[in-house]
Amino acid sequence: MSPADSVDQPIIRVEDFDLFYGGFQALLKVNMSIRPRQVTAIIGPSGCGKSTLLRSINRMNDLAGEVTTRGQIIIDKQPIYGKGINMVDLRKRVGMVFQRPNPFPLSIFENVAFGPRLHLGLSKTALREVVEKSLTGVGLWEEMKDRLYAPALSLTGEEQQRLCIARLIAVSPEVLLMDEPCSALDPIATDHIEELIRELKSQYTIVIVTHNMAQAARVSDETAYFYLGELIEMGQTEKIFTRPQKRATEDYITGRFG
């Protein structure tokens, strides 16, 4: 497969995907393709199913209790719904960043080492290397290298969110899911995290949920607009924001609605 091919081949394919919380249908026959090493933004009004879709991609919805699904999501040719799916493996490949930074109440080092300790069985020196590489990857190494054993909860919000990203890339995932990763941060920190997202996309496929239209426009290559559990329109971000095909999309992004 040539490099050009691999950009065109979607890495995630959502196929006729329905999701029910008990009797309530939160996702309706969603079909979408997400390309590798790009940032895909998911936008839409509150309650339209953005987080639900994101959590379907790493199957965190399984924790929500009475959840049933139909259809399939395929990541890198492997279906993730059905019998004999290895959750540990899936979540290693598909990492998730949460709305509020949620570092563990452990040291900075232990936070980053958490995933590798679970999955990789590294030697002490190899582990340190992974931690250094991951912290460097999120731009925290220089600041943190002298206080790796400080509690992670003593960091600022932005640093905590970076640490949470470092914690993911320490296990070399393919996909990073981010659910409103900047909504608990101030504008400057938001700028910094957006910058980081643009850097990370050279190595990872990123799916980001955001309420901030400008943010979607700034960081994403493709944008998907959801409304009431349905994918209304998806395409190149530039097109979605300048020449949307659907009236509903246009109303939403121009702020006439939502």
Binding site: L90, P105, R167, V171
Partner: peptide, 24 residues
């Protein structure tokens, strides 16, 4: 959120309890 963080990293239930919940 600690629990979700651990599970999203691929921790099993026991690993989550042992490595995150108990220390916390």
């Amino acid at each position: 959120s600690y629990r979700y963080g651990a599970i999203a990293l691929g921790a099993t239930r026991w690993q989550t309890i042992w490595r995150v919940m108990l220390p916390a």
